[in-house]
Amino acid sequence: MNIIVCIKPVPDPQYYDKVSIDPATKRITREGIPTIINPVDKNGIEAALQLKKTYGGKVTVITMAPPNAVENLREALAMGADEAVLLSDRAFGGADTLATSYTLAKGIEKIGDYDVIFCGAESADGATAQVASQLGEWLTIPHLWNVFSLEPQDDKALHVKTKVENGSMEWAVKLPCLLGVARELNKPRFISAMGIIKAKNKPIAIWGKVDLAVEDERLGLTGSPTKAGEIFTPDLKRKGEILTGTLEEMVDTVIERLRTAGVNVQATTKACDCCEGGGQK
């Protein structure tokens, strides 16, 4: 079974509260934030490695990213993937999900033979959650999103469960197919020292525009129907009044404010002990 996993290098989500907009250049500054494999993409790698263990075959990881993404691909190889492909070209820059999925589709068509493609359900940074479905459309193969359970029936079909609000859906899907996976699917393995050593000798192909059978007008910014307008940081500030007094007094104040805000609270507060009849009950 040949399996392809799409990964995306993203700034480490642990540091997103440090992301800001440079007031002069109006660009997002993310300096000093390390670039990692989008966390849920590792669940895709794990799922691929598990399928390979059962059915044999090959796991190829692919990304569309700047040249330094070689580091992230090397990590995926260290987890156990066999080969890696980096799609990198200035012409790919500024791509929205439609242009990104188009370029990935062209890279995957060049890789050729595949049975299952895994993507993370969404990226931590942009979080549009659209690339998986759109990639499936470009490749005209069945695709499912938010997959949290996966049972191969044989090497031709899978039984899949997807998350929906307050529940799940069950599906039977024939290969080849694409699955956008959720973090609940599995627990990605850690990298072993042996894995790191082996990864050094595994191939990483780097393909640009000239290596792919692409239509130029579908690439990058030109191929992106969505255009970015202004960016800003939301103003979430409130008045931040800090209460003082004893614990009892502070809690009584809170209850008073709840009532003012229109919440029906039945409480025994000190203030009420001195009311007529011993207070509200």
């Binding site: 931590a124 940074d125 979080a127 255009k227 970015a228 307008g229 202004e230 800003f232 940081t233």
Partner: peptide
């Protein structure tokens, strides 16, 4: 984007 830290306009 970035967990809500940045808001961007899309057209």
């Amino acid at each position: 984007s970035f967990g809500g830290k940045i808001l961007g306009e899309i057209l």
